[in-house]
Amino acid sequence: MSHFAPSNWDEPELLDLTGAPVPEYGTGSLADLLPTLVAGQGVPGFTASIPELTPADRNCVFLVDGMGWEQIKAHPDEAPYLNSLLGTSRGGTGRPITAGFPATTATSLASVGTGLPPARHGLPGYTVRNPATGELMNQLRWHPWTPPKPWQPYPTVFQLADKAGVATAQVSSPAFQTTPLTKVALSGGTFLGRMTGEERMDLAGERLAAGDRSLVYTYYSELDGAGHRHGVNSDAWRGQLMYVDRLVQRLAGQLPPRTALYVTADHGMVDIPFDEDSRIDYDEDWELGAGVALLGGEGRARHVYAVPGAEADVLTVWREVLGDRFWIASREEALELGWFGPPGECDERVLGRIGDVVAAAQADAAITASVNEPNESALAGMHGSMTAAEQLVPLLEIRT
């Protein structure tokens, strides 16, 4: 089976957990990208888990927030340059890889930067329970404050590459320089803040030429914002995709010799209809709330934390109510099936962050919370689950 065209991304049978299309950790996920690249640069301790990628002296990763593989394919007119990279062309190749579960920004960026799956790095969702306090922690906004190092203790790939003598840099918005998420997931080498996309592309090209071996990461977030606010079928989203297409072409035109540029994303996105059948309001549903102490995650990837002793009952009710639209698994089932990483490889400190029950959307539906999450519940576009539209992200390669 091809790593990049997995057969299980077809529509699965409802209620069948074995039909859930599990992320391809170890062979074709975001967590495998940087380890493969730096292994080719001679950084100790890494192996090329995506062996199809040919080593390069200089590597650049351009991550576009919210730009799924399926969305690129669906918009050839808005993204002609990106679509030209979907196959083998321009000295490189283009194919999908899997984001990891849940397909959400904090989780995916931690997977990219640490080279580890969520069950190891410990950021397994948008909001998760902190076992030490019993509170929900927002891992994107890092609220309430939690000491970053104990929460994610592993070194980043950037830190290890920089220590090995690779000229390493992150080129992103200045607003991200000192955030805890950057500290635990993307730090190492030099952070260079630039406001506009054009400035980031130009500086990334310059930094790639800074050493005989270099690793540069750059990031653009506004496509995701347009998708959340207006949906991926909106004019605003299409306009952002057109802009991203031009940014990629601009960066590709500035690559120094012996460089590989990889364009990827942290997740895709789906539009959720604004009706009661598609948006199940947890705050108005007494059945779903029975026996539940905390509701974490986000609309399409929920962590459900049960009152002690009610775990089995909560699992039963959630399956009865939502099993035709969601994959519903216990924590143990989700780990055994490999949702958060290879089975048997969950760090002890991470176990309590994962819900007693985990719900991942199959249909175009979301579990909202109109009272406790009014802003998130009002979003037009959402992500998080394991459908192809959310889980498959591009790995587009351009080489010089």
Rank of each mutant, 00 (worst) to 15 (best):
T146Y: 10
R200L: 05
V216W: 05
L14A: 14
V248R: 03
W69V: 06
S7D: 13
P148V: 10
G92N: 10
P6A: 12
Y262T: 10
A119S: 15
L396C: 02
E345C: 01
Q254P: 01
W9F: 15
G309Q: 12
L255V: 05
A39R: 01
G100H: 09
P150S: 07
T316F: 08
E390I: 01
L396A: 06
F326A: 01
G211S: 12
R250F: 05
S89F: 11
M67P: 09
T98H: 13
D77P: 02
T190Q: 14
A260I: 00
E336K: 13
M195R: 15
A360T: 15
S89G: 08
L223D: 02
V166G: 11
N83V: 06
L247H: 06
Q159V: 05
D347S: 12
G100I: 03
A185Y: 00
R213P: 11
M137W: 11
V22M: 14
V244S: 09
D16A: 15
P76A: 13
Q152C: 14
T93I: 12
V64F: 06
R213C: 06
M382E: 08
A5N: 12
G227K: 02
P102V: 15
K163M: 02
W327E: 05
P343C: 03
E198P: 04
P144Q: 11
V393H: 03
A110K: 07
V112E: 00
R300G: 05
L395M: 15
E199G: 15
S84T: 04
P118H: 09
L315E: 13
I280K: 07
L208K: 14
P256A: 04
A290L: 09
K183D: 14
F340I: 01
L86P: 00
S234G: 01
A301K: 04
G231L: 13
G268S: 08
E206N: 04
T27L: 13
T264A: 07
N372Q: 14
A210H: 12
K183S: 13
E13K: 11
A310N: 15
M201Q: 03
A293R: 12
R200D: 08
S187G: 12
K73C: 14
V357Y: 11
R399P: 03
P102K: 12
A306R: 02
G291H: 09
R129Y: 02
G45Q: 13
I272N: 02
I280P: 00
A365I: 09
W69M: 08
F62H: 06
Q249M: 02
N59G: 00
E336F: 03
G231H: 14
A366K: 08
P6R: 15
L247G: 06
H75M: 07
L247I: 02
P35N: 01
G189D: 04
A265K: 09
Q139N: 13
R95D: 02
L123Y: 09
V270W: 10
F274T: 08
E336N: 12
F62Q: 03
H75E: 13
D347I: 01
Q159I: 03
V244P: 03
S234F: 04
G115S: 10
A110L: 10
Q139W: 09
D235T: 15
P256Y: 04
L109T: 11
N8Q: 10
H267C: 03
V184H: 04
G341A: 06
A369V: 01
